[in-house]
Design a protein around this nucleic acid. Structure first.
Lengths: 352, 352
DNA sequence: TGACAAATTGTGTGCGAACACAGTATCAAT
DNA sequence: ATTGATACTGTGTTCGCACACAATTTGTCA
């Protein structure tokens, strides 16, 4: 397994390094005879280009635009951004440059403005969180025309023009939540799904989680489901709503909270002295605390930091290292209990 | 964030690149005045060495010895080896060379012979699976004397002389198994722990899993536990043993199989028409099949492929890239059900 | 002040690959 | 025979860094 260099191939094939280089990069101006010979020798010696030397010689820069909601306006996006940063630390020497184009998650005009900037700056690729469907599709199309590659993150948008997708599988995580609850509740009990988000109809992730949840239950015993939408996050409001709901419908066998606000519901239940099995999402501090206290039964985790990490790595692998990457990369859906939570916290400490 | 080169620093500090180089590498023979000036400028421009160019210029080779049980004799070791190979694909350009010193897992003499070879060949580092304590400690000590770094994998051995450890936390996975079962069984039922391994007393992992399992139950309701050791893997034998056991003790509320042979027990239970909740280990094909059929309730997964991957990456990060790496790296303990199993299979497809 | 050693600093080469450019060969047209 | 066009090939420079070696400065003592 010793290293084979262009020089070596050239010597054995009886040509100059330049010719070997031309063959390797299909740069033409090589006689058929020479090309054949070079290819033969390359095959024979199993030539593997030295990517280190190659990178140095190219001396290129690869400009990547990061286009996600601003972490300042939505702290969730700190996680993917952190993953992106960690990945960047591992690949910056390939000449990768990052420019941020954070947009306001609720202002469409903000997205449009950023999109315009990106198209003007013409980076080599865009890492895009496509929060709104129509605008994003238009943008992707414009990028294509300007030869800018698009990698999607967090929300999957069906488009043939994208480089790939890295993110969650919300539907499947809804299925999983249903499975976990159905393992621990009585058939006679009803289950409850809570969206702690006023405009949950506008969040594809929440809708998909609910669909998955319902589908599983329909296919496995058709347990009864009640839904509750909590319009704000104040403790009093939630406690009242829950209290009313329970006195009306009786205590549910299990509760599925579709976003990261599980801790609010668990806390309210504690205060109402009405413990029940609760499945929530995301390893944020209050959730973990209530998980450890037993007020939350399971947390489902789709590592958002890894999302950013993989997304950037995929772009680099594909565009710079010319490796094959999967078109769709779904993060694992981890089941978290107090006994294994620590392994998922700071899951990327081993990276830079 | 433009790039700063040694040249640039030299020019601004008014010295030659050679001097800057000497400062960076603490190679001495630099006047205090020059060193101060250079350090100042480096600080000011936030110099980050170009590791690509550095690697190319070093033109060193780093020889790594892989010392694990032979994958031929124990197929488990195919997984770490596969992870090692994938990691190697990502770092081979740093001049990493791998030599294999597989030993026979049951022959102590085989280990000794390999150890002798390694000490003779004097690699830069060893990736060691320390299956037996005493011999391994001796070996680690010998390595230290010859300035060979040791990274442990799979089995943690307490020694101050090691570079680090990457692997499982067996005790904790036993705890987790107990937790999962206690969530689904009646307090009145008894639990069963099965070691499908004749000489389980000699396997630290199995012992630790059992300890964890028992500890959790002692601390949470003190559920009754029965133990069964299966001395061989023949279907008839297992069915008979289980049948006898159940007719003697009654059907257990849940079964914990401490190694990857859960499928054998699940199969036997099916044939005995005695379904019960079963928690097993490892995502091997028969286990996954029986998980999907519902004959296994949970599988616990500690990705053995990642183990090899992280181990090699840790060595490279530490010894070549001079980054800090954690002294102990435990793999996550994944809870696997049919609804999320696919994400853990081929979990490394995104690498090389 | 000169001689000479020690301390410090500068210069140059090589790592492997990419690519511009100069150079050679071939052949047809004049 | 000379020119020009085309097809092909080799050479040399570059990337940023490491390190050997040459060159220079500084210090010491007679």
């Amino acid at each position: 397994m010793q290293k084979v260099r262009i020089k070596d191939i050239a010597a054995i094939a009886g040509v100059s390094p330049g010719t070997v280089d031309r063959v390797i990069h299909n740069r033409g101006n090589v006689s058929d005879k020479a090309r054949q010979r070079v290819l033969e020798v390359m095959q024979e010696l199993n030539y593997q280009p030295n990517i280190i030397a190659s990178t140095l010689a190219y001396n290129r820069t690869f400009r990547l635009a990061i286009m996600t909601p601003s972490p300042k306006h939505d702290t969730y996006w700190e996680l993917p951004y952190s993953g992106i940063t960690k990945a960047w630390n591992n690949v910056k020497h390939y000449g990768v440059m990052i420019d941020e184009y954070f947009y306001h998650p609720l202002l469409e005009s903000s997205f449009q403005a950023r999109a315009k900037q990106v198209l003007h700056d013409r980076p080599d690729a865009v890492l895009l969180a496509a929060e709104t469907e129509k605008e994003s599709l238009d943008f992707i199309h414009s990028c294509l025309k300007k030869n800018i590659q698009c990698m999607l993150i967090n929300t999957l948008l069906e488009s043939p023009d994208i480089l790939g997708y890295v993110g969650q599988d919300s539907f499947q995580s809804g299925i999983l939540a249903a499975k976990l609850l159905s393992n621990v509740v009585q058939k006679s009990d009803y289950l409850m799904i809570i969206h702690a988000e006023e405009h949950f109809e506008q969040s594809r992730h929440l809708i998909e989680k609910e669909s998955g949840f319902r589908q599983f239950l329909e296919q496995h015993g058709n347990q009864k489901i009640e839904q509750l939408v909590l319009k704000n996050h104040s403790e009093d409001y939630i406690r009242m709503e829950l209290g009313d709901f329970i006195s009306k419908h009786g205590k549910p066998g299990g509760i599925f909270v579709s976003n990261s606000r599980g801790y609010l519901i668990a806390q309210a239940l504690k205060e109402l002295d009405a413990h029940c099995h609760l499945v929530g999402f995301d390893l944020i501090e209050p959730n973990i605390r209530l998980l450890n206290e037993g007020a939350i039964l399971y947390l489902i985790n789709q590592n958002a930091e890894l999302q950013g990490y993989y997304a950037l790595m995929s772009i680099v692998n594909k565009c710079i290292l010319k490796k094959e990457v999967p078109a769709r990369h779904f993060l694992p859906i981890d089941i978290v209990v107090p006994e294994n939570v620590s392994y998922y916290l700071d899951s990327m400490h081993w990276l830079s």
